[in-house]
Every structure is written in C-alpha cells, then in structure tokens.
Write a protein that binds this DNA or RNA. Structure first.
Lengths: 189, 189
DNA sequence: AGGCCCATGTAATCTGTTACATGATTCC
DNA sequence: GGAATCATGTAACAGATTACATGGGCCT
C-alpha cells in the first residue's frame, strides 16, 4: 500500500496529471519510489474513488485531454496515518548485484560491459538530481535552505538519491576495473 | 525471474538448505537480494523440478530433516544466460523516503523516531557486513584479495552493501537532526 | 515516411507478502 | 514454563510487470 502514499506525497507540491507522474516515477526523478505508468493510472483511479485525491479534466486542443490531480483533506489525513505507522526496512533487489555475486562463474566480459553502462546511467542521474537540488534551494546555500526553507522534504529525499547514485557509480567503476585487471592477469600466463 | 538466479548465485559457494538460504535472504546477509522464506521454498521446488539445482535429504536426529541443495550443470548454464542478458536499472522503493518526502506535511516526531531506528539498524548491519568481509579475505589485505582471491563475487557485493548501509546511516542521522532543529526553532517563537 | 511525444487505459500474468499449519529441541 | 531455533510447506491476497489498444501532432 505504499504506492498510494508515494503518489500522495508527490502531489503535495503541485497538481499533476497521470502522465506527468508516470514520467517522474518511471524515469526515477521521484527518488523515493518507482512504478510503471499502468500501475499509476490504476492507483490514481482508486485514490480518486476513495476520495484521497481530486481530479479535474483539462481540455486541450493540440493534445489529448488530461486529468490533473491534487490531494484532498482526506488524502492528507491518510498521509498522516501512514507517517505514523511503522516502516519496514528497505532491501536491495538488483539484477546487477546478482550477476556480480556470480562473477567468478560467469563471463567477465558481459559483466564489465553492464557495469560500465550502469556507471554511466548513474553519472547521468547524478547530474539531473544536482540540477534539481539547485532549483529547489534557489539562491540560498544548502544549510540555510534546510534550516529555513518551507518545503524541504523533496530536497532531503533528493540528497539520498544523489548519494545513492554516486555510490553506485563508484562501485560499478571499481568493480569493472577489478574484473578487467583479473581477466588481463588470467590471460597473461 | 531474478530470484531464481539469486538463489543459484547463493548456492555457488556452498550446499545449503532452504532454511539456511531463508535466513540469509530474509535478514539480508545476502546483500544482493531479499526474499521471504515462503518464496524461497516455492522457488527451490521449481528450480529442482527444472533441474537447475539438485537436492538431497539429510536425516538428522535431534532436529527435523532437511534438504541440502547445490547447483547443477544446467543451473550453471542458466546463470551464464542470465549474466549475458541485459539487466534493467534498479530502483529505490522505500517507505521511509516516502515519509520524508512528505516531511513538511506530517508529524516530525514520528519521522525522527523512525529515522533514528533505521539509522541504528543500518549501523548494526554495517558491523555484520564488516565481519563478513574480514572472514572472506582472511589474512590478506583487500587489494591483494581482490587481485588474487579465487572467489571475489560475494566480497564485491558485500562492499556495495556496506557502502549502502553506511550512506543510509549518515542520511538518517542528518535528516533526523535537521528535522529536530527545525521543530525546536518552530517551537521557540 | 517513420519515429517520438502526449495521454489514458484494459487484461493477463508474474512476483511478493501475509496468514496459517506443524512439531521437536534447546536456551534462559 | 516460555521463547527461540530448526525445518518445511500451503493458500489467499496484494503488488508489479508485460502485452495490447488507440490516436493526433510534431520533428527530421
């Protein structure tokens, strides 16, 4: 039931359409959760039916019409309840880690390639997130913003996202380098 | 289909029982994946039926009998295929991040408490993982082990796990401190 | 002309969680 | 005496992914 609350949290800042939310949750700009568009459309329908969000149709000419959603009072209350309930620890689930776990038994070439790709992906995401941070804090420096800004939730989750992507980037590069060196040493005798 | 491969990867090092695997995957000693016992027993049954692992009954006196599993040739081949297939990027899904995203609209007290708990959990896990690393590399230093050790996959994933938990710990502490300070400043005027 | 972006959904399937069930042994 | 550990499962449900469906406008 956490996708509901992730959606509510995302709609706190702005009225958004399903499509806009889908982009954020799919491409991972929303650092705190991830979901496919289909899941979002379904959950948005449920949230509206339950009265936690309110949608309004926006008629457009050159594009298909869209529905913009915002959180209702009941939605805010639901978020309060969620925040008060106990959170379970989060766990890693990553294809790439499974592959590295098996590194000694599978082809290192494929692994190095995938590690390199992931490193690049992480690097690109760091840039996007850094821009996001800069936009959010505006002219202020980070400390001042975090002390006096009115809306720091998204900034805090974004900080976690950046650290995560930086760590991913470094680990991928280091791991790829180690595997390459071992492969070279292996071939060289 | 990644749980299958996570199980295969876990069974590369040793013949293990469902129960042993469950402990590793549930408490998160297996840094590369997480799953509940029930899911493992189901998946182990499927893996055996498909001939990717072989089980053998071990009769015990003072305890219930158990089944020990090891990877077959077909299982190894399946892992090879998996390693060669493209991995999709991994995504964050964390209750706690959702709550922090909504931090400006929900009760800070609950949040600070949960952040503190999570920080402690992460700290404890770092210790466990550091011990694991020390056990794996034995007398050698890290560089030497990574260059010449025969089985470095689990060490590499463990390194990623430690960095992750350390980052979680620091972020939780910092975030809790920021929220506490804002609460105090809020009350103080 | 072909492909991407906007915009929303349904249906089928797969994956993961929760609740339930059993029963002996060891530790405090 | 009560809790934790060992050991394996079944059944019901909730959550997530994949495939399919539609259709105009914009860019190259």
């Amino acid at each position: 039931m956490a996708l509901r609350h992730a959606l509510l949290a995302a709609l706190l800042d702005a009225e958004l359409s399903g499509y806009q939310l889908a982009k954020a949750f799919d491409l991972g700009v929303a650092n705190f959760w991830h979901a496919q568009p289909q899941q979002l459309y379904a959950e948005l329908a449920r949230l509206e039916k339950d009265g936690l969000i309110a949608g309004r149709e926006v008629v457009q000419e050159a594009r298909p019409n869209k529905r913009m959603f915002k959180v209702t009072e009941a939605g805010l209350a639901a978020l309060h309840g969620f925040a008060a309930s106990s959170a379970r620890p989060s766990f890693i689930r990553d294809d790439l880690l499974v592959k590295v776990q098996a590194a000694d038994h599978v082809d290192a070439g494929h692994l190095v390639q995938q590690l390199t790709e992931r490193a690049e992906f992480a690097r690109a995401k760091v840039e996007v997130l850094e821009n996001l941070l800069r936009t959010m804090r505006g002219e202020r420096d980070e400390d001042a913003f975090l002390r006096h800004g009115e809306r720091i939730g998204p900034y805090l989750t974004c900080l976690r996202g950046i650290t995560h992507e930086r760590a991913t980037h470094e680990w991928c590069e280091r791991t790829a380098r180690i595997l390459r060196e071992r492969k070279a040493a292996d071939a060289g005798h």
